[in-house]
Nucleic acid binder design. Structure first.
Lengths: 217, 217
DNA sequence: CATCGGGATGGTGTATCCAATCTATGGGTG
DNA sequence: CACCCATAGATTGGATACACCATCCCGATG
């Protein structure tokens, strides 16, 4: 069943993940042009995996192809960013609703586990663990929706939303308390509440752009 | 500005478009496995453009990679299809709303032109022209939203929605009268009406799956 | 100072080559 | 006769080399 091949992560997948990380971490700046050769040298792989990775990231909207001139890390203007955020709200709402509708035991167990661990890490003030758990939160809801396509698109949309704008970070400090409330509502199968919390979770915070979000316990 | 290179469509883009067309037209059936070699021979190109095309289509959700075994045309189950439809409604609504908000003169002119030509083709019973215009309809609204990312994602979502399910076509006869009403509402900047019509346009028709939709004038 | 031209750079596409691995065929064994 | 395993062939994954051409840079020239 689980053959060697399906366990093996191909070099191109690693390459995709690594370049994606470089972009999202801002090590590759928006607008920066990437050449196959320099990227292949930087990552220590041949040009071929890099080329395939570029195609993939192009489809994800993280880079754009410049004919005969390689690719460039995309820059988002404010309008584009607003649109992406709106897309994200719409799709996250669909995801959480479908997760509740499906009520998959496996997913519910994962959510319970996440809730427990998150509460523990939060109480212990273990920020590192909490960050990891916060990252997992949306992923689980995406997968819980039962649609691979929705999950993939959501991932792209989130990456866009976290993408740097004009060189400055656009990421907001995730709030565990909000995540915890959404998980609880989801486990309670309270569709209306879960969606309401999710909407607020995603919209509320952009009014005071750049403000501090560590005020939660 | 418009150099030779930017006019030139790369072979890999042609390859992507061709394979995508083969899938959407059902010439490559859902579940069918595709090999790089046979596809490259079929299209008369080398393996490399095909490989890049596979990565691209993988990101679009039209094929899925089987490690060490190439790719397979994705099959959608009913739940996946329902989810895709829901995603589409949400995103098309965002697109039409943003198109109205932007009120780009260029886009408005294109819409007016589309409306006029569509009405003429409809009156003349020129179904071929009308089909082409119907195809353009959603594209224009996607681009009119002013977000490249939204436009791209919408294209993928539409492709998913048109994808074959269980071997039988899933496409519905587009209704020009509905499109015309949406365009008119958009040009009138009647946001509420346009969104309402769009929602109905996309949802109404799937209750009596397989029914006739040519009843409109 | 502007423009033209040519070389350097780098993306695109093809052709090979090789390793890893999946699939299938076929033979052996209980 | 059915099942299991091994070997062989086919295919993907990856690297490399090369041809081609568009773009870019820079210096020479008007």
């Amino acid at each position: 069943m689980s053959s060697v091949g399906s366990r093996h992560r191909s070099l191109r997948d690693e390459t995709v993940d690594e370049i994606r990380r470089l972009i999202l971490d801002g090590e590759l700046a928006p607008g920066e042009r990437l050449s196959e050769l320099s990227m292949s040298e930087r990552l220590g792989v041949s040009r071929l995996p890099v080329r395939e990775a570029f195609r993939r990231l192009e489809a994800e909207g993280l880079v754009e192809a410049l004919p005969r001139r390689g690719v460039r890390v995309v820059e988002l203007d404010q309008h584009e960013l607003d649109t992406v955020r709106e897309m994200r709200v719409a799709l996250e709402l669909i995801a959480v609703r479908r997760t509740i509708m499906k009520a998959d035991p496996q997913v519910r167990a994962t959510l319970r586990d996440l809730l427990e661990k998150g509460n523990a890490a939060s109480a212990a003030g273990d920020r590192e663990t909490l960050d990891a758990i916060n990252d997992q939160f949306h992923d689980v809801l995406g997968e819980g929706s039962g649609s691979r396509f929705l999950c993939e698109v959501l991932r792209s949309v989130r990456n866009q939303a976290h993408h740097l704008v004009g060189g400055k970070s656009n990421a907001v400090e995730p709030s565990w308390s909000e995540h915890a409330a959404i998980i609880t509502a989801t486990l309670d199968e309270d569709e209306e509440l879960a969606m309401m919390l999710m909407r607020r979770h995603l919209t509320q915070r952009h009014a005071n752009q750049g403000g501090l979000h560590r005020s939660q316990a």
